[in-house]
Structures are given as structure tokens and as C-alpha cells.
Amino acid sequence: MSGELIIRAVRRGDYDQWLPLWDGYNAFYGRSGPTALAPEITATTWRRFFDAYEPVHALVAESDGRLLGLTHYLFHRSTTAIAPLCYLQDLFTSEAARGKGVGRALINGVYDAARMAGSPRVYWQTHETNVVAQELYDKVAERSGFIVYRKAI
């Protein structure tokens, strides 16, 4: 990463650089090979970023014309706030970009987007084994103490 780091909204022309980052993110969480996401999910996710009626958004980190990372976030209503909350759903940086401030810059980009939308809070979750990411998260946010439960339906 020799040039300036730019955090910006994803563009349609970014697909060929976004896709390997998306695939890397999914592989990190065990969604590859036989457990890979269906191609329709990736295609729908990509289309949502450009649909004004969707609450799903994407930022990318760029340096010297190369995408180094991505983050996806969405706004949703809550029973505990009037303004929509911001959920940072996905965050991933290329192996070469790790430890260079790219993840922090992407999180800050989501913070900026949330502020502009009038959202009172940004929150996210990570797997308990993702201790490297937690080192960063502990510096840029506070742990809520909540435990996530889920059931496939």
C-alpha cells in the first residue's frame, strides 16, 4: 500500500476486484467449497448495493487503483430508537492490507455514513475465535456483552 488510502462507496465497475474480497470473507467464515454461498446470493447482494430502495450499502478501501478491503452495512428500525440503527454486517481486508489501518478506516467510514443518516449507533458481531479482529474492535468500540442466538428455519 504505497498510495493514499481512500474509503468510498462501491461502484458498479468494482465488481471484478470486489468479488475476490467477498470470496475471501466467505472463505474465512467457512462458506467455501461445498458450503459456499449460492451464486444467486452473491449476485443479489451485489445488486442491492445499487438499489436505492435497499437499506444495504457497501464501502471499499482503495489505494493505487486496487481494492484492499470491503465493508457492508445496513440500516434498520428498532424498538429502542426512533432513528434507524446501523449494523456493520461484513468487514474484510486482503491479506496484504492487514495491520495497516485499512480495517479501522473502513469502520470509520461506516461511522461517518451512520452519522450522516442520523443513526445513533453502529454495532456488529464477530466470531469468538476471531481474536485478531477483536484486538481492533476493542479499540474502536465497546463490547455489548450480548450473546447471539440463532436457528436456521
Rank of each mutant, 00 (worst) to 15 (best):
L88W: 06
L67S: 01
G118L: 06
G69N: 06
V132S: 11
E135H: 15
K139E: 04
M1H: 14
V140S: 05
A9T: 12
S63W: 07
F92D: 11
P34Q: 10
R11T: 07
Y15E: 08
A117M: 02
V132W: 04
S144G: 15
R121P: 04
E135S: 15
V56P: 03
R31N: 07
Y29E: 00
L74E: 03
F75Q: 05
G65Q: 04
A105C: 00
G69S: 08
R47P: 05
Q89N: 14
L74N: 04
Y53W: 08
T93N: 11
I41A: 04
F75H: 08
E142N: 06
D138I: 00
A133E: 08
S144I: 01
W18P: 07
G99N: 14
G145I: 02
M1P: 14
W124I: 09
Y111N: 13
E135L: 15
T45R: 06
S94F: 10
T79C: 08
G69R: 01
G30M: 08
A43N: 02
D23P: 01
V56Y: 15
V56K: 09
A105F: 01
F146V: 00
E128S: 15
G118P: 09
K139R: 11
E142V: 10
A61M: 02
V10K: 02
A9M: 08
V10C: 14
